[in-house]
């Protein structure tokens, strides 16, 4: 299982890359591996506001649909439209192929997320 240093991680297996007030969000290697072949990504509309913990996107594998929960609150400012034609990019590289970008409304929420080491431990305990 691949984990990247410098990212923040949620218990729902999303990662967050922070750039100023922007949170770039995707799903982790652990998540893509347990989902299996991803065949569809349901992206949110740009401009939508979400609270931390809200389902903000849906990743569908061959076998099931899984919600992507927003690790932080904010407004959707960008979505990765490459995933519409090529959802399998998430399987190929889940950290390169982000899903959406939020303009955070409460960056303090980042403190409740795990760092790479903490997330790795969390996954080991879950397995």
């Amino acid at each position: 299982m691949k984990v990247i240093n410098g990212l923040k991680y949620s218990k729902d297996h999303e990662w967050v890359k922070v750039e100023g007030n922007r949170a770039i969000i995707g799903i982790t290697d652990y998540a893509q591996d347990s989902l299996g072949d991803i065949v569809f990504v349901d992206l949110p509309e740009v401009g939508r506001t979400v609270k931390a913990g809200d389902a903000v996107a849906v990743v569908e594998s061959v076998k099931a649909a899984s919600d992507v929960y927003s690790p932080v609150s904010g407004t959707v400012v960008e979505v990765n439209t490459n995933l519409e034609a090529s959802p399998e990019l998430i399987n190929q590289d889940p950290y390169e192929n982000w899903i959406l970008v939020l303009e955070m409304s409460d960056p303090g929420e980042l403190d409740s997320l795990m760092d790479a080491e903490g997330y790795e431990r969390f996954c080991e305990e879950e397995a």
């Binding site: 299996g36 061959v62 076998k63």
Partner: peptide, 8 residues
């Protein structure tokens, strides 16, 4: 077994 290498 649900899958080995991948469903696709």
């Amino acid at each position: 077994p649900l899958q080995y290498t991948g469903i696709l």
